[in-house]
C-alpha cells in the first residue's frame, strides 16, 4: 500500500521545522514516530501534501523533571518512557500505561506527543494525560502556548492546534508522596487497541482524604472521556472501595461504548466499572505508599 505523493523535509532544529510549517500551512503535517500517521496515509485516510519529519531534531528527545512536573519532549518514544526512572518515580499513571502501548516494535518508534496530538479515542496516552491533568506545549513562529489537555483534545482525531503550531512538549504534574495512579487496559492481544482502558489518579491530603481525583477512559467514546462528575464527587471524601464503586457506576453511566469486534457495548460498560474500581484501588495503594 502506498500513500499519495508528498514533499518531505527533515529539519534539524525546531526553528527550522516551524519555518517550514509556516510556509506550507494547512497542507503540512508533522511526522514524529509515524506509527499512526503512516498507516493512515497508506490507507489514504490522510494525505498531507507536506511532511515535516522531526526525527532528526535530537533536542526534542528528553524526559526531564522541571519545577514540579515532568517535561516530555516531542521526540520521546514510548520505549523511552518504559525505561525512564524519572517517569517511574514521578508519574505512576504514565509508568503503568507505558508497557501496554502498542507492541515493542511500535514503542521503539512511536512518540508520546505524537499519540497525544493524534487524538485517536483508542489511544492510551490521552486518557493518562486527562487523568493526571497534563498540559501540552505548542510552538509556532508567533510563540508558545501552554494548553490544558482537556482543551487540547477537541474531538475524534481533532486537537486544538492552530495552523503553524506543533507540539514540542508535554508537561505532566509530578506525583508527590501522597499521590498514586494506574492505567488498566483490556486488550485482545498485544498490539491491539484497547477494548477498554481506564486511567486513574489520586492525590490525598494530610488527613488522608482525597484532594484530587482524575479519571479518564479509552475506547469507549468519540474521544478519550474525562469523567468529571466522578472526579468532583470524590474530592474531600474518604478513599475506599465503597467510594470507588460509586465512581465506577458514574463512569459506566457516562461512557459511550459501541458494540464491535472487541465486544458488545454492555460488556465494555461493565469492564469500565470493574476497571475503574480496580484502578482507583491501585492508585490508593500507591498514594499510601503501600506498593
Amino acid at each position: 500500500m502506498y500513500p499519495p505523493a508528498f514533499e518531505y523535509a527533515a529539519p534539524e532544529s525546531v526553528e527550522e521545522a516551524l519555518d517550514r510549517l509556516a510556509e506550507v500551512g494547512d497542507e503540512g503535517r508533522i511526522l514524529a514516530g509515524g506509527q499512526s500517521l503512516i498507516p493512515m496515509m497508506k490507507l489514504r485516510l490522510a494525505a498531507p501534501a507536506h511532511l515535516i519529519d522531526i526525527n532528526e531534531i535530537a533536542e526534542l528527545a528528553y524526559i526531564r523533571e522541571v519545577n514540579g512536573h515532568l517535561a516530555i519532549g516531542a521526540l520521546t518514544r514510548h520505549a523511552d518512557v518504559v525505561r525512564s526512572e524519572v517517569v517511574a518515580g514521578g508519574c505512576a499513571t504514565m509508568a503503568s500505561a507505558a508497557p501496554w502501548v502498542a507492541d515493542p516494535l511500535v514503542r521503539n518508534r512511536g512518540t508520546v506527543c505524537g499519540s497525544v496530538a493524534h487524538c485517536d479515542p483508542e489511544g492510551d496516552w490521552n486518557s493518562v494525560m486527562l487523568a493526571v491533568g497534563a498540559e501540552v506545549v505548542a510552538r509556532s513562529k508567533q510563540g508558545e502556548r501552554v494548553i490544558p489537555i482537556s482543551e487540547f483534545v477537541v474531538d475524534f482525531f481533532t486537537n486544538s492546534l492552530r495552523p503553524g503550531e506543533m507540539v514540542t512538549e508535554l508537561r505532566v504534574p509530578r506525583d508527590d508522596d501522597r499521590s498514586g495512579g494506574a492505567y488498566l487496559k483490556l486488550e485482545r492481544k498485544i498490539g491491539d487497541y484497547a477494548t477498554v482502558g481506564v486511567a486513574a489518579h489520586l492525590r490525598l491530603d494530610e488527613q488522608g482524604r482525597i484532594a484530587r481525583a482524575g479519571l479518564a477512559l479509552t475506547s469507549v467514546g468519540p474521544i478519550n472521556l474525562k469523567v468529571t462528575e466522578a472526579e468532583e464527587m470524590m474530592v474531600g471524601q474518604e478513599p475506599g472501595d465503597e467510594l470507588f464503586a460509586e465512581a465506577a457506576q458514574i463512569a459506566a453511566r457516562t461512557c459511550e461504548p459501541t458494540s464491535d469486534v472487541r465486544g458488545p457495548a454492555e460488556y465494555k460498560r461493565s469492564v469500565v466499572a470493574a476497571y475503574t474500581r480496580r484502578a482507583f484501588g491501585r492508585a490508593l495503594a500507591g498514594a499510601r505508599g503501600e506498593t
Binding site: 527533515a10 509515524g34 521503539n108
Partner: peptide, 15 residues
C-alpha cells in the same frame, strides 16, 4: 540497532 517495522517508515527517513 533498534528493531522497527520497516513497512511503517519511509526510506528517506533512513538517510
Amino acid at each position: 540497532g533498534v528493531p522497527v517495522k520497516s513497512c511503517t517508515m519511509f526510506a528517506v527517513q533512513a538517510d
